[in-house]
Computed example of a mutant assay.
Amino acid sequence: MSTATPMPEQGRAGLSLPSPINMDWTFPDRDAPLPVYLLVQAPSSPTSSSLAGVGPAQTWRDLHWSLSWQPAEGAWRHVQVDMYDVKTDPAPQPRYVFWGARTTTADAAAEGSAARLELGTLARDERRRVEQMAWEVPVMYPNGEWNCQNWVRGLFERMVEAGLVKQERVDEVVKVAETVHGDLPVP
Rank of each mutant, 00 (worst) to 15 (best):
V54T: 14
R102C: 03
Q80F: 02
L67V: 09
R30S: 11
S45I: 07
M83E: 02
M83H: 02
S19M: 12
A72E: 05
N22I: 07
M23P: 00
M83W: 01
Y37P: 00
V40H: 06
W65Q: 03
L63C: 15
W65K: 02
L39K: 05
D85R: 02
L51W: 05
V79K: 03
P18Y: 13
I21A: 13
P56A: 13
V54S: 15
H64S: 05
Q70Y: 14
A13M: 10
A75F: 04
W60E: 13
S66R: 04
L38Q: 05
N22M: 08
G55A: 13
T88N: 10
Y96S: 00
Q58L: 11
T47E: 14
D82W: 07
V97H: 01
D89I: 11
D89W: 08
V81G: 05
W76N: 06
L34E: 09
G74C: 02
A32T: 12
R102N: 08
S68N: 12
L67R: 03
P90Q: 06
Y37D: 04
V97Q: 00
G74D: 06
S68L: 12
M83L: 13
Q41R: 15
Q93N: 13
Q93A: 03
L34G: 04
L63N: 13
D24R: 14
V97A: 00
F98A: 07
L38F: 07
H78Y: 05
R102T: 02
T26N: 11
V36P: 02
M23N: 08
A52E: 10
S16M: 12
S50Y: 00
F98T: 01
G100V: 11
D82P: 01
P46D: 08
Q93Y: 00
S50C: 15
S68R: 05
G100F: 09
W25K: 13
P94C: 09
A101W: 01
V97M: 03
P35Y: 10
V79L: 15
A42Y: 00
L67M: 14
Q80W: 01
P35A: 10
A91R: 09
Y37G: 04
S66M: 12
G100T: 03
P92Y: 09
D82L: 12
Q80C: 12
A52W: 05
Q80G: 03
S45V: 01
P46N: 10
A72Q: 11
D62T: 11
F27T: 04
A32V: 14
T59N: 10
V86H: 00
T59I: 09
P92I: 09
P90S: 04
R95C: 02
H64R: 06
A75I: 00
A52G: 14
W99M: 01
P71W: 02
L51M: 13
W25I: 11
W65R: 04
I21P: 11
V81I: 15
V79H: 04
W69H: 09
P56Q: 10
S44A: 12
A101K: 00
A52T: 10
R102W: 02
R61L: 07
F27A: 12
S49W: 03
R61F: 03
L67A: 06
T59W: 09
P94K: 04
S44T: 10
I21V: 14
P33E: 11
I21Y: 11
W60N: 12
P28V: 04
V36M: 11
S49D: 08
M83V: 13
R61Q: 15
G100H: 11
L34Q: 14
A72M: 11
A52K: 15
L15V: 06
H78E: 09
L39G: 08
S19G: 14
H64G: 04
